[in-house]
Nucleic acid binder design. Structure first.
Lengths: 245, 245
DNA sequence: GCCGGCTATGCCGCCGTTCGATATGGGCCG
DNA sequence: CGGCCCATATCGAACGGCGGCATAGCCGGC
């Protein structure tokens, strides 16, 4: 992680020094995976690297959507609110995930840092111009959006039809699989978000989340380790528990 | 509606006769809206028109995803199943909606006709070739996917955090707004799907759906009319009820 | 007119919520 | 280094909204 010490930092080395994208650890996962060296250079020209602390709100629902982001380190959460304060977290973003697609010029959700995060930041206009110029990039972005759509449908099944226990098991499995895709070990799985965040992601309360973790621990399905890590004792069993079969 | 009388019909008039897309009533809503006359002609070359009766399963979750569709008339439902039969309907498709995006060569959900439907049918390979050739079409498809993503996030908020009453009110509002976008009157709203389908879309049971409709009727928010139509007495009130404010 | 599927509704039970109290643990300061 | 403090997590008890089941009513099709 670069040694930044401010909330927002303009990465002047992007233009002057070596191409930062060339050394990007998550490039293969992102929209940038589709690009050649020359295209990467063009992308780097319009990019800023920024860093935020946990709890920082990147943007709020309804804000003007003039910026796109790519997560390069840390975890973010996206959420929507009801007037009385009820909250639904619609997704957690991990390194390599894209952020900032919008429909009508405004963001449809809020985005907040869960852990310290670093992001690549693209002005929307210039990004769109690049997309027109590089159809490969457009196609890659479309493919990522399709993947998110499929994940959203999985999440609908979870929210609408799964029990508390199935939801927690599905959640742990998802974190494990996403960690694996990023080249980390699948077990034990790192769970950086709070019980409240997990509850608002799964359509539960913090109490139910706590109780269910305790229940899974008591029945020897998982173990809670130091540093927000969860050891999964039997991955196949967890998979079955996640689908009620 | 063309006078088809079979389950699957190859529309031979597409190539031989007048360009059918030119007269398409929902073209402005679909991916085809982005196309010029010449591009439309190319699209028409690879297209078949098909028609299905209610209950017909277009494809199932896990099937090989070698075909894309565009709904031109009627209503379809998309759903996912759990091993024990629990079902979550992830969306209802109306004329103009696109269908068949997939991640790993297989459909991630099943698709079934709710009412009699007519669809445009595109072989996946040839469609992808056209997308490469016409970036405007690719961009349009991406924009439609972004819209669906936003709708999916709304649905997550509904499933995870709204009460039964709020869910039903949100559902009626959505149908009303979608009807309006298609040039129909927003009120009364046509509700072609069964209580069971509504329940599986909103994460409820049929009984709760029935009870909630009765409750809304008793409190004079709506009235149930002939022909599966619902009269909304006060649209603003319904909007407030849908968000719990 | 009869039959079958869908819808409506009363009754009861349960899962998850709500509320309150207690435990834990990490950060900060003395 | 130890102790305090506040946020978070955990746990117990009571409540309530929604689900499950059974029955009755409705409507459409043949």
């Amino acid at each position: 992680m670069p040694p930044f010490d401010m909330g927002r930092v303009r990465d002047v080395s992007a233009q002057a020094d070596v191409n930062p994208c060339g050394a990007c650890p998550v490039r293969s996962l992102t929209v940038c995976a589709a690009l050649e060296a020359e295209e990467l250079r063009r992308l780097a020209e319009i990019l800023q690297t920024v860093r935020f602390e946990p709890g920082h709100t990147l943007f709020g629902e309804g804000d003007k959507a003039d910026t796109l982001y790519n997560v390069t380190a840390g975890t973010m959460k996206l959420y929507k609110l009801l007037p009385d304060g009820r909250r639904q977290i619609t997704g957690f973003l991990l390194p390599g995930d894209f952020l900032g697609l919008s429909v009508n010029e405004t963001y449809a959700y809020s985005a907040e840092a869960v852990t310290p995060v670093t992001l690549c930041r693209f002005p929307r206009r210039r990004m769109e111009a690049l997309l027109d110029e590089f159809p490969k990039m457009q196609r890659r972005l479309f493919s990522m959006a399709s993947n998110e759509l499929a994940a959203a449908q999985d999440q609908m099944l979870l929210l609408g039809r799964k029990t508390a226990k199935e939801k927690i098991c599905s959640f742990l499995l998802m974190l494990s699989q996403r960690a694996q895709r990023r080249g980390h070990k699948e077990n034990p799985v790192h769970v950086p978000m709070s019980r409240a965040d997990i509850a608002d992601y799964l359509g539960l309360t913090t109490e139910t989340v706590s109780r269910t973790f305790t229940q899974l621990k008591t029945s020897r399905v998982i173990a809670l380790l130091e540093g927000n890590k969860v050891q999964i004792h039997d991955m196949d069993q967890l998979y079955d528990l996640a689908e009620g079969s």
